[in-house]
Write a protein that binds this DNA or RNA. Structure first.
Lengths: 333, 333
DNA sequence: GTGAAAGCGCTAACAT
DNA sequence: ATGTTAGCGCTTTCAC
């Protein structure tokens, strides 16, 4: 293995000069810099990561904890992972992957051994059992999702409440007067997954403010569940013309069910969704996308700010954007 | 940060004794061991990963390069990733994630800086441009997939040739005499993705040996492509009663197309597939599963063997297993 | 069975 | 603008 002293010898300078030439942490004459660079190139020198980590107490690695619970939309998780890795690289960091399964131990291990400089934890729930740990880890942490109280944490996510509002506003703007939210399966609400409830709040609030008739229906993530909810909607809300779907698994089955019940989309019913963008695009549904890429990138930026000792907000909410597609239209006169 | 000297002082022993107590690399009296363990517990001591890596030239981290090409079945990739992480943990290693996009540089960086002890590279193609690099990396490497010549590498994958054979044998055993393979889109063959061609070889070979009439049809990964192929099959092979599908995207559309053409499955046509198991299960199709979990776990084991200096085979082929489901039946008398 | 001490390769004072 | 040197925290000879 070629080391810094080898480079120094060949370049005819001291090791520290090589180090400084590499880090730019002090001025180096143009001449010296070139000699050093040549030596580095000729020898194929690469600084030893462990030695550097030991000397600087920075590993330039960050941990990413990914959820693997059933029901997670895998492509979205993957997209998120990729965006974190990509963003980390922009800051010259690598990413160590931890599975949820490893649990608290994994986080503690990589943080305590200084294997990583900080961590990004995905999919934090309202009353996440990891909360106490997350607040007390040695190293800076950023979490995706919002627990019941973000105090002492750094949280980031799509503003789901605003997402609910945007959908309603879109429908209201098209003249719809009676709307319904088809949400996640009942378990999700019981588990108190923050984002599901936030959507409900946004949806209901916006509907009330706009003076719309509104209703909320949890929905099983199965075609049968979709059919049931469709029928129920027609029965209980005959004036219904606008639907917001926050449940990717039933988006397609639901639209199908409506059609089978004789309702055309968007002729009789305008449908919007909050879901992964590829799904919405595929189905041609006006939707608020889950911006996994942005969330991941910003999570890394927040973490880097914390590592740099800069203050960061406890809560960062990403503004939703709704993409109009063919599933929504002006209400029939 | 609490370090080994702190533990040593509290336990009333020397640092080396603490180190040995931790590693078990030399006998320690029961008494001493307990004092050390107590001190470690009381202080919450964790060895510094960087320091250890520097002293041992082992980081206990391995790199995993994941592909992100369009057309990859994301859940399968993810399943693979998880199995690698899980297996690595069994050997007390962590996993650093590299994206394909980073390319050769990423691999070179983490290997040359000793950030990782070795690497697993997913989705290696027949004429993969990374091949020269992979053969020359400082650290042991295991690749998933088979390039045209595995010499100098350690490769592992499902035995796709055998998978093709198993499907044909299954159909032949049920009395079918005319079979067809519906394969990947033409591009895949052009790109010379090894596994696609191996399936064709296995399929054709087994059909010939069993004296079956056989044909191979590449197929676009769209419902339209599926419909076209279905029609073509009926036209060109009127005696056809057995189909092997190696193209997850068209499995469902194809079965649909057959039904619309008046052919029942398995009544008129028996269908088998080589695809992710959840898909096959969902559709009730007899299939050879892509064993991502096993491949990942075994890749890690191979890598650990190489790290331990043990010899490993250049090629490891996993035996396919076909799960019988409702899509295949005895040929009508 | 245990300790002392010499590195592992790098960075960052502290010198000049 | 550059060199000298003392660590960073751990492992592992070598010595007893």
């Amino acid at each position: 293995m070629v080391k810094i002293t080898d480079v120094a010898r060949l370049a005819g300078v001291s090791p520290s000069t090589v180090s400084y030439a590499l880090s730019g942490k002090r001025p180096i004459s143009e001449q010296t810099r070139r000699r050093v660079q040549d030596a580095i190139r000729d020898l194929g020198y690469r600084p030893h990561a462990g030695a550097r980590a030991l000397a600087t107490s920075r590993s330039n690695v960050l941990a990413l904890v990914v959820p693997l619970r059933a029901g997670m939309h895998v492509p979205v998780v993957m997209q998120f992972v990729v965006s974190v890795v990509t963003a980390a690289r922009r800051y010259d960091h690598d990413v160590l992957l931890l599975t949820q399964e490893e649990g608290d131990d994994g986080l503690r291990r990589v943080a305590d051994t200084a294997l990583v400089d900080g961590q990004v934890v995905m999919d934090v729930q309202l009353h996440d059992p990891r909360l106490p740990l997350l607040r007390n880890l040695e190293r800076p942490t950023v979490v995706i999702g919002f627990p019941s109280s973000p105090q002492g944490l750094t949280c980031i996510d799509l503003d789901f409440r605003a997402a609910g509002e945007v959908c309603v506003d879109h429908l209201a703007g098209l003249g719809h007067r009676a709307v319904a939210l088809v949400g996640s399966p009942p378990e999700v609400y019981v588990r108190q997954t923050a984002f599901a409830q936030r959507v409900v709040q946004g949806f209901t609030g916006a509907a009330d403010r706009a003076g719309l008739q509104s209703a909320v229906h949890p929905c099983e993530a199965t075609p049968l569940g979709a059919r049931r909810v469709a029928e129920q909607l027609l029965r209980e809300q005959p004036a219904l013309t606008g639907v917001v779907v926050h449940n990717e698994a039933v988006l397609e089955p639901l639209i199908d069910a409506f059609r089978r019940l004789g309702l055309s989309v968007p002729g009789d019913l305008s449908v919007t969704a909050i879901c992964p963008d590829d799904l919405a695009a595929h189905l041609g549904v006006s939707a608020v996308a889950l911006p996994s890429g942005e969330v991941g990138a910003q999570a890394v930026e927040l973490l880097m700010d914390k590592l740099a000792g800069e203050p960061v907000p406890e809560a960062t909410l990403l503004r939703p954007t709704l993409t109009r597609r063919a599933s929504t239209a002006l209400r029939d006169a």
